[in-house]
Measured scan of single mutants.
Amino acid sequence: KELVLALYDYQEKSPREVTMKKGDILTLLNSTNKDWWKVEVADRQGFVPAAYVKKL
């Protein structure tokens, strides 16, 4: 499975999103959308801005 690194803190703004902290390592589930990537963090799945994460 592919992992991404959170480059910035992100606070979810809708139930479809997830909160992450800078430095978090997240499991990447889907990166087909260039703006929003689906990730899993702490047993929750949701979207984060693609610009806020980097593939490892």
Rank of each mutant, 00 (worst) to 15 (best):
A6P: 01
V18W: 05
T19C: 07
E2F: 12
G46W: 04
V53R: 00
G23I: 01
N30H: 08
A51F: 09
W37G: 00
V48M: 02
E40I: 10
E17A: 07
D24I: 05
P49C: 05
K22M: 08
T19N: 07
V53C: 15
S14Q: 08
S31P: 06
D35S: 13
T19E: 03
G23A: 03
L28H: 00
V18L: 15
V48W: 02
M20L: 09
L26P: 01
L29R: 04
V18G: 02
G46E: 01
K22P: 03
Y10R: 02
K54D: 07
S31F: 08
L3T: 09
K55E: 06
S31C: 12
K55V: 12
W36Q: 03
E17R: 05
E40C: 12
P15M: 10
E17V: 05
K55Q: 08
R16P: 05
T27Y: 12
L56P: 03
R44N: 06
T19V: 03
E12L: 08
D24H: 06
P15R: 11
G23S: 03
A6N: 00
S14H: 12
K21L: 08
Y8W: 11
Y52A: 11
L28M: 03
G46N: 01
R16F: 13
A50G: 05
S31V: 07
V18K: 01
R16W: 15
V39G: 01
L7V: 07
G23K: 02
K38D: 04
L7A: 04
F47P: 00
V41Q: 14
Y52R: 06
K13C: 11
V48S: 01
W37E: 01
K1H: 12
L5I: 15
V18C: 10
D43H: 12
E2V: 14
V4L: 10
E12P: 14
R44W: 04
K1G: 10
D43F: 10
A50V: 07
Q45P: 06
D24C: 08
K1R: 14
K13M: 13
V39E: 00
V4I: 08
R44T: 06
K22L: 05
L26K: 01
D24Y: 06
M20T: 03
Y52Q: 05
L5S: 04
P49G: 02
V48R: 00
K1A: 11
R44Y: 05
N33E: 12
K34N: 12
K1Q: 11
Y10F: 08
V18I: 14
S14A: 09
W36M: 06
L3K: 11
M20V: 09
V53P: 00
A6K: 00
P15G: 09
L3M: 12
D43I: 07
V41A: 15
D9Q: 04
W36F: 07
K13W: 05
S14R: 09
T27H: 10
L3I: 08
P49E: 02
P49Q: 02
W37S: 02
K22I: 06
T19I: 02
N33M: 09
L7D: 01
A42S: 13
D35Q: 14
K38V: 14
A50T: 06
K54A: 13
G23P: 00
T27A: 13
L7R: 05
A50D: 01
L5H: 04
E40Q: 15
R16L: 14
K21W: 11
F47I: 07
G46Y: 05
P15N: 11
G23Q: 02
A42V: 11
A6S: 05
